[in-house]
Simulated assay, not measured.
Amino acid sequence: MCADDLGLGSAGFDSFMKSPMHRLGFNYYGVGHGEKIGNTVDYAMSPHVDLSVFTILAQSRPGLEVKDPQGEWICVPPAKDALLVFVGDYLQRWTNGSYVATEHRVGPVTQPRLSIQYKHRPTYAAVVSPLSRFVDEDSPARYGPFDTGRQYAVLLQSLLGSG
């Protein structure tokens, strides 16, 4: 549906999805989670965008915050029987910024919180860069190529402090 919406046709991303590296994650945040892991700020998960095409999230309790276009953090209350869908970094890169990745974080945890996320990711080592449809003289490429294998691993290691 996303490829169709972007005018790429239903097979627009097929070459990037031959053996996708999807990720299903489960997060638990106990009360005071940020303090327990040594955060010196008032949030439990640092602000970030997901390195994915998109992320689908289910959450049990309040805590998720997204940054609005003015730079303010907005609380996203959990909604019964609803899933949230975030645009990820790879879709932002492919569309040269036409779609914007959702910057988000987990704020202070005042009651135990669970979230389940599914990250839709391309094939390992797919190179993500602005697609030609989104680049021209008036809109030069805003992003260089990003290797979802090697570069992703290096970036993840740096974020986790293990590299």
Rank of each mutant, 00 (worst) to 15 (best):
P20C: 01
P20Q: 02
P20H: 05
P20A: 04
P20T: 04
M21G: 07
M21Y: 03
H22G: 04
H22P: 01
H22C: 06
H22Q: 03
R23K: 11
R23L: 14
R23W: 05
G25K: 11
G25A: 11
G25S: 08
F26T: 06
F26M: 10
F26G: 08
F26Y: 13
F26L: 14
Y28D: 06
Y28L: 09
G30E: 14
V31T: 12
V31L: 09
V31H: 03
V31A: 13
V31P: 11
V31K: 11
G32I: 15
G32A: 14
G32W: 12
H33I: 12
H33E: 12
H33F: 13
H33K: 08
G34L: 08
G34S: 07
K36S: 14
I37D: 13
I37E: 14
G38T: 13
G38I: 13
N39I: 10
T40V: 11
D42M: 12
D42A: 14
D42R: 11
D42P: 13
Y43C: 15
Y43D: 15
Y43E: 15
Y43K: 15
Y43N: 15
A44W: 07
A44S: 14
A44F: 08
A44K: 06
M45L: 15
P47K: 10
H48M: 06
H48C: 11
V49I: 12
V49H: 12
D50M: 01
L51D: 08
L51V: 05
S52W: 03
S52H: 13
S52I: 01
V53L: 12
V53T: 05
F54H: 05
F54G: 08
F54C: 13
F54W: 13
F54M: 14
F54K: 02
T55W: 02
T55Y: 02
T55G: 02
T55E: 04
I56F: 05
I56Q: 01
L57G: 06
A58Y: 15
A58F: 15
Q59P: 00
S60W: 02
S60T: 10
S60C: 03
S60V: 01
S60D: 04
R61K: 12
R61L: 00
R61I: 01
P62Y: 08
G63R: 07
G63Y: 05
G63L: 05
G63S: 05
G63C: 03
L64Y: 00
L64F: 00
L64Q: 00
L64S: 00
E65H: 03
E65N: 05
E65G: 06
E65S: 07
V66I: 14
K67N: 07
K67R: 12
D68I: 03
P69W: 01
Q70E: 07
G71T: 04
G71I: 09
W73M: 10
W73Q: 07
W73D: 08
I74G: 09
I74W: 10
I74Q: 10
I74Y: 13
V76R: 12
V76C: 10
P77K: 09
P77A: 09
P78F: 09
A79P: 00
A79E: 07
K80W: 02
K80S: 03
K80T: 02
D81M: 09
D81K: 14
A82P: 00
A82Q: 06
A82G: 00
A82R: 05
A82W: 00
A82H: 04
L84R: 01
L84Q: 03
V85Y: 08
F86M: 13
F86R: 05
F86V: 02
V87H: 06
V87D: 03
V87Q: 02
D89W: 08
D89H: 07
D89N: 11
